[in-house]
């Protein structure tokens, strides 16, 4: 009891278990398990707000469908962003490559001119 009294004001950083949350919303948990989830709700504003909102969703089965759709959209966004970044990087690499080739060509031309000039002087 004493330990419980001290625990009232502690905040928890427990991991979020989506399945447990869904079971809680569906009323599938035992009283003991419900209490464990509600302890987290009382300590965590984010989770408490979320449960309050998820309770409003008319068909609880839709929650998982919505979450899957949102996760798919999220990956599309992240992938698109990654592709743009990769394209930008590829363009940069092409310019670097072109600059190196140009410098090499100029060096070669300069060397050829020097050789030609020396031959003219000696010959």
């Amino acid at each position: 009891m004493n330990k419980d009294l001290l625990n009232i004001l502690l905040n928890s950083n427990k991991d979020i278990d989506n399945q447990q949350l869904m079971d809680y919303l569906a009323g599938k948990l035992s009283e003991e398990e419900k209490h464990a989830v509600e302890m987290q709700l009382a300590e965590n504003d984010f989770m408490s707000d979320a449960v309050e909102g998820l309770e409003i969703v008319k068909n609880k089965r839709d929650i998982n469908v919505f979450v899957d759709q949102l996760n798919r959209d999220l990956h599309k966004k992240l992938f698109r962003k990654k592709s743009k970044k990769q394209r930008r990087k590829a363009v940069q690499q092409r310019w670097t490559f072109a600059a190196i080739i140009l410098i090499l060509v100029l060096l070669l031309a300069a060397w050829l001119m020097i050789v030609k000039y020396q031959r003219l002087r000696h010959g």
Partner: peptide
């Protein structure tokens, strides 16, 4: 981010009351 998708959906539902 996908660790929090469900919680974010819940928070937005709480405030906006529309799926």
């Amino acid at each position: 981010m996908q660790r929090y998708t469900m919680l974010l959906l819940g928070v937005c539902m709480k405030y906006l009351k529309n799926e």
